[in-house]
Design a protein around this nucleic acid. Structure first.
Lengths: 97, 97
DNA sequence: TTATGATATTATAAAAATATAAAATGAAGG
DNA sequence: CCTTCATTTTATATTTTTATAATATCATAA
């Protein structure tokens, strides 16, 4: 069952690294509520604009989020079922206890 | 539910960083089968001894694994239910597809 | 009590991640 | 068109992670 993750360890680790940052977890928490544009994410988290853009780019690279344009704004959303599952595990471990 | 991970984002991110490395995932795959000593882990993975020791130390720091001594050998085991849950999510995503 | 086997620790160099500032893009309103 | 707003891109310095080599520890068998 679990023992053959090793063959795919490189991919799986890259995916986890996409999540393994406190600011990105905050962003993903917000996106777990529903899609939000970049300005909303900045306002809600206090993360500097440039930094936000880079974090979103990294999440996009790992296909953890996707976005759509609406007028001038880009609305990001969580697009990765496994990422949501992991967020749930983290919630149960670090928030619900 | 999920939205308040942000308050604990730092801790949760540190935990994820403990997992987010291909060699450590391989180690954890093996430990998911049951406890193993360091020599067995080295033989099964090909990871150099020094490197193995450091990875195990990092996993220990995050309380993801624990160990017991038996004669000269140290037997490590997976000691973290949330880590096992995440391994399962990764397995379903990267191995069972 | 010494040698050996099993593992950890320390040191250090290389690679990757993060933060921050400056400049660039691109859509939309006037 | 020109300006402005929302966002990305590029550049760079700092910090963290990883890899590797050398050395140390510590339990045990001889």
């Amino acid at each position: 069952m679990i023992e053959d993750i090793s063959a795919n360890a490189e991919q799986a680790a890259m995916f986890l690294k996409g999540l393994a940052n406190p600011q990105r977890l905050m962003i993903l928490c917000l996106l777990a509520e529903g899609e939000k544009n970049v300005s909303e994410l900045i306002a809600a988290t206090g993360i500097p604009q440039t930094s936000m853009s880079q974090h979103l780019n990294k999440l996009k690279d790992e296909n953890i989020v996707d976005f759509r344009r609406e007028h001038r704004s880009l609305f990001y959303r969580l697009e990765h079922p496994a990422a949501l599952k992991i967020m749930t595990v983290l919630h149960d471990e670090y928030c619900a206890k």
